[in-house]
C-alpha cells in the first residue's frame, strides 16, 4: 500500500459519498446515469467475489463491503425510492448495456491470466469498469445544466483513476513482479475517457462557471 493508492481509494470513496449525499439531501438524482451506477454494482459484485475465499487485509475487506453496499444503495434509491426515482432522466439515459457488457465479457473470456470462473469474472470487472462511465458521460453531454455535485462526482472519479495510475507506475518501479498489462491497458483507457471531460471541467472552473459540455 502506497500513498498514491490510498489517495486513489479515498477519492473513490469520496466520489460515492458525494453522490449519496446529493441523492439523500436533494431527494433527486437528476443528471445521474442509472446505467453507469448499475454497471458499477455489477463490477463490484464480479470483482469482490474473492471476499468469500481470500483475505488480504481488514482495510481491503472493509472497503470492498463499503463499495458493494453503497453501490447497491445508490441503485436502490434511483430505482425504488418514490421521490428520487421521479427525478431520474429515463428518456435521456439510453445507453444500451449490451454494447458494453458483451464486448467486455468476450474479451475477458479470451484475454485473461487463467481460465477459471473467478479469474474470468475478475478480468471482466476490470474491463467493464474501464467503460462503465460512458453512459454517465453521454447523459452529461445531453443535459444542458449539469449541477455542481454531478460535475464534482465525475471529477472525483477521474481523480481516483489518476491516482491509481500513479500507484501502478510506483509499483512497477518498486516491485519486482509487477507486470499487470490487463490492468494497465484498461486503466489507461478508462482514464483517457475522462480527459475530454476534465478539459471542459477545468475551463469552466477557471471561468468560475457552471459546467457545460459542448454538444
Amino acid at each position: 500500500m502506497n500513498l498514491f493508492r490510498l489517495c486513489g481509494d479515498m477519492f473513490h470513496l469520496l466520489s460515492i459519498m458525494v453522490l449519496l449525499l446529493k441523492i439523500r439531501a436533494t431527494r433527486s438524482c437528476r443528471g445521474i446515469s442509472l446505467k453507469t451506477q448499475e454497471l458499477y454494482a455489477l463490477v463490484f459484485v464480479c470483482r469482490y467475489l474473492d471476499l468469500f475465499y481470500s483475505f488480504i487485509s481488514v482495510y481491503n475487506s472493509f472497503m470492498k463491503v463499503t463499495f458493494l453496499a453503497t453501490a447497491f444503495s445508490i441503485v436502490r434509491y434511483m430505482r425504488y425510492d418514490k421521490v428520487v426515482k421521479q427525478t431520474y432522466d429515463r428518456e435521456q439515459d439510453t445507453f444500451r448495456y449490451v454494447f458494453l457488457i458483451a464486448p467486455c465479457l468476450l474479451l475477458a473470456l479470451v484475454l485473461n491470466h487463467r481460465f477459471t470462473l473467478t479469474e474470468v469474472l475478475w478480468t471482466f470487472s476490470i474491463y467493464l469498469e474501464a467503460v462503465a462511465i460512458l453512459p454517465q458521460l453521454v447523459l452529461m453531454q445531453r443535459t444542458q445544466n449539469i449541477d455542481n455535485l454531478t460535475a464534482n462526482y465525475v471529477a472525483l472519479l477521474g481523480a481516483y483513476r489518476g491516482f491509481y495510475i500513479l500507484n501502478w507506475i510506483y509499483r512497477f518501479a518498486t516491485e519486482r513482479h509487477y507486470r499487470q498489462w490487463i490492468v494497465w491497458i484498461s486503466g489507461v483507457i478508462q482514464t483517457a475517457l475522462y480527459a475530454d471531460f476534465f478539459f471542459y471541467y477545468a475551463l469552466c472552473w477557471k471561468a468560475n462557471k457552471r459546467l457545460q459540455l459542448p454538444a
Binding site: 493508492r5 473513490h12 475478475w122 509487477y178 499487470q180
Partner: peptide, 10 residues
Amino acid sequence: QANATAHDEL
C-alpha cells in the same frame, strides 16, 4: 504468481 499483486487492489 503473475497476477497475485493486482488482486490486492480494489
